[in-house]
C-alpha cells in the first residue's frame, strides 16, 4: 500500500506492507540510516524519531499509521548546513562514544527542549531514560544538555 508523509520537511511517498515498521521504511527505502536498529522491541531508543513532534520509537510504529504525519530525524535538525545546538554540544562535551545511541539520544533531547527549554537535571535524566547508552556516557550527555540550558 502507498503511504505519504512528511520526512524532515519534505513530502515522501513509499510503497509498504501494512506490517512494515517505520525504522525499516526510513532505512531501507528512504536511506535515512541515522535511525538505528538496536532491539526492535522499544527498549533501547536507538531508533527514536519525532512523530508530529512527539518522541517515539520508530520500531514500534507501523508504517501505514504514519500517513499524513510528520517525521523528524537527526538529518532534519540540520538547517541550511548549520547543525543543531544539541548536535554541537553533544560532540563538544564528549557526549558520544560508540555513537550508536547518539541519533536517538539527540531526538530525545530535542523532544525535551521543545517542551521544556529549562529542564532540571532530573528532568534531563527522565527525558533520556528510554535511550540506552551501553558505553555508559550518560554523565557527559547530561552535562552537554546543561550547557545548552544554563
Amino acid at each position: 500500500m502507498e503511504v505519504r508523509f512528511v520526512l524532515n520537511g519534505t513530502e515522501v511517498k513509499v510503497d509498504v506492507k501494512p506490517t512494515a515498521i517505520l525504522t525499516d521504511i526510513l532505512r531501507d527505502k528512504l536511506g535515512v540510516t541515522s535511525v538505528k536498529k538496536g532491539c526492535e522491541t522499544g527498549d533501547c531508543g536507538a531508533c527514536a524519531v519525532l512523530l508530529d513532534g512527539e518522541l517515539v520509537n520508530s520500531c514500534l510504529v507501523l508504517a501505514p499509521t504514519v500517513a499524513g504525519k510528520s517525521v523528524t530525524t537527526v538529518e532534519g535538525l540540520i538547517v541550511n548546513g548549520e547543525i543543531d545546538i544539541i548536535q554541537k554540544r553533544l560532540a563538544e562535551y564528549h557526549g558520544t562514544q560508540c555513537g550508536y545511541c547518539t541519533p536517538g539520544m539527540v531526538m530525545a533531547i530535542k523532544a525535551l527542549l521543545n517542551k521544556n527549554p529549562k529542564p532540571s537535571e532530573a528532568e534531563i535524566r527522565r527525558a533520556i531514560s528510554g535511550n540506552l547508552c551501553r558505553c555508559t556516557g550518560y554523565q557527559k550527555i547530561v552535562e552537554a544538555v546543561q550547557s545548552i540550558t544554563a
Binding site: V32, K36, E75, A91, Y93, H94, G99, V106
Partner: peptide, 19 residues
C-alpha cells in the same frame, strides 16, 4: 575540550556502521 574526531559524524547520523 577536544571533540573526538568522529563525534560530529555521530551526532548528525553520518557515521556509517556495517548495518
Amino acid at each position: 575540550r577536544i571533540p573526538l574526531y568522529d563525534s560530529y559524524r555521530h551526532t548528525t547520523g553520518q557515521t556509517r556502521y556495517v548495518d
